[in-house]
Design a protein around this nucleic acid. Sequence first.
RNA 1: GGAGAGGUGGCAGAGUGGUCGAAUGUACCUGACUCGAAAUCAGGCGUAGGUGUAUGCCUACCGUGGGUUCGAAUCCCACCCUCUCCGCCA
Length: 451
Amino acid sequence: MLDIQALRTDLPVIAARLATRGFVLDTAHFQKLESHRKSTQTRTQELQAKRNSTSKLIGQAKAKGEDTSAIMAEVASLGDELKQAEVQLGEVQSALQQLLEVIPNTPHSTVPLGKSETDNLEVRKVGSIPAFDFAVKDHVNLGEKLGLDFDTAAKISGARFSLLKGSLARLHRALAQFMLDTHTERHGYTEVYVPYLVNAESMRGTGQLPKFEEDLFRVPRRGFEPTERISPDGVYQRGFMSEPLANPMEDWYLIPTAEVPVTNMVRDEIVLLEQLPLKFVAHTPCFRSEAGSYGRDTRGMIRQHQFDKVELVQIIHPEKSYEGLEELLGHAETILQKLGLPYRVVKLCSGDMGFSAAMTYDIEVWLPAQNAYREISSCSNFEAFQARRMQARFRNAQGKPELVHTLNGSGLAVGRTLVAVLENYQQADGSVVVPEVLRSYMGGLEVIKAS
RNA sequence: GGAGAGGUGGCAGAGUGGUCGAAUGUACCUGACUCGAAAUCAGGCGUAGGUGUAUGCCUACCGUGGGUUCGAAUCCCACCCUCUCCGCCA
């Protein structure tokens, strides 16, 4: 969320910055709401002040045993007008809030201007692209002999799920363990285990709600009848839904990234200055509906409804956040370097960044079968955008509460890393060499072969 | 699933419907005393918002949302959360 004070004082400037990311801010609408808010709030507070002072007089008069009927009649006439003013104020404030919640973050001044991913800026390329003296296979072809089974996953669940067996399942686990160990032992992160089902308030805090609900899996709790049942006359019914119950419980959402539960750890908290930066790493599954991505990456495990990710999160002092972003990016890069995977770092342009980010670096890993770099990590500085939504603050040197900055980045997406390992370490016979750093996690296994 | 207890300021903990934004203790900050510290004494110490050049003034907030009332931390309703006991359970 943007600072409403800044919008009040600097509206044209902020609108122009938002325009660089392709967002049109309706400034006239904002100004109209804002002036309505101002007059309504002033009027409401005047009436409240009058009610309060008069009511106090009644109390004092009664204490002395005086007659209060005249004064009570006076304040009674306030009632309707005050109630109406309060309702109006509530309406205009929630309208402002709703408007504010769907405005994206303003890009940092050093973010390259552009409309789409073609305008992103390549920052560096690291590692050398492997040369193969045979026809490279993609991870799907390679995996089918090694334990990567999409058919069974489709039977169990549906499209965009995968099932790993044997050495590949272990490789998947090894990657996650290796990443966690590296970040905790070398980069100073504290490992956390977090809930995978979160409430709407947490989703709002990091910016997934209210605008991107269609990307999420929503899990109803109490509130509906089951979706399957045997009807009274003995017929099996599927997809049955009753009318909603009178008092439904708040729904949960499956996390689309560990960013949500981990960053929300500091929601509604005031952390001590000396505790900053807080650095957390979590290995979690991520669940995404992939609504709107029909037909994209349908083959293989690049784009799944469920995938694992090791996520880095930092809660950091505002003056240190850009420094912190470079460090966090480096922490993610370390994983690729140690795995010996070639990659490049891209700075996203204003038009390609996510809703909440002020600056984002993507790390793209080389996939030989696609002959392309593909995103494997996204590292962002959200500045105070998420902190403002979460009311996540620290006590500054003057002892006053001030919003923290939040950073996060994948370190890395486990499924895509597995794809990259398979494709980059493949051999002519269809086997895959296990990267050196993973072997201790694989019981010393050096090559994954068809069983 | 059944029965009960409770949610108040950083923490602890009071609060007959009427100067309660809230006693008191503790922590913290400032000052006094001291060579210094401890102890003691005095003062200060919530968050958000509005308004004004300004000392300031005003509004909201006692789990959340409604309601009753001229007036609600206090009364009523619903919900959320925590804890205890019983049952079930990985």
